[in-house]
Amino acid sequence: MTEKISAGAPPILEVRDIGKAYGSIIALQGVSASVSAGEVLCVLGDNGAGKSTFIKILAGAHQHSEGTLLAFGEERRFSNPREALDLGIATVYQDLAVVPLMPVWRNFFLGSELTRGVGPFRRLDVQAMRTITRDELAKMGIDLRDVDQPVGTLSGGERQSVAIARAVHFGAKVVILDEPTSALGVKQAGVVLTYIARARDRGLGVVFITHNPHHAYPVGDRFLLLNRGTSLGDFAKSEITIEEMTGLMAGGAELEALAHELERPTGASGAPAP
């Protein structure tokens, strides 16, 4: 359990001995971690490890019942997601909050549309929204031929990165990604990992939730390992190898089966699960 306090600015998000109980059920306890600007924190754990609870606390969807949560060095207790969002903590959930039949640019600005004109002539500033969408996506390395195409026609990885780019454009300082690669094939997952790296390079903090060490390890700077609601440790990349991480996550007995499972997808096609 390392408590890294960087010399300069405080971490964007930090939790100390945080915990959450739902009635008598303890979903999470004693978890400490932090993410700074330009850093990727990977949160790893098997199903039921407490990953969802952890991100819900960070995102403001649930309040923590013990420990402290610090945003930009200040102690916080979010009562709703809007408060977190206003501080620049954006969460991209698995459903991505996109409308498949709507064009990319309409999705990009959904709920925060740009308008011009006044009174009854107030109208969408379509040209500006198209341009900004194209530019923001280009910064993420997505070169769309046509921002008018429905989001539903994009590949899974591209849809994910549209959601990330949208969060970044609307002022996110840290992006929490809820299993962005879990529904994707190997190739598409690689695309998303590239975008995560790109967001990191642009100075954002990224909290990357996954159950796949092979996705986490190449892109992560720090790794928080969860198991059965408790922390197995918060490691810097230099402190842990991928094998150790996999071992810790799986627990010795199941390691062999897990390793077997992890090997298989590399030969499979790039198709995402339906």
Binding site: A97, V99, M102, L110, G111
Partner: peptide, 14 residues
């Protein structure tokens, strides 16, 4: 369009 196409997404986007 949004509430008809994906109401949960629309809600999440405010």
């Amino acid at each position: 369009f949004a509430v008809g196409g994906a109401v949960a997404s629309a809600r999440e986007m405010g």
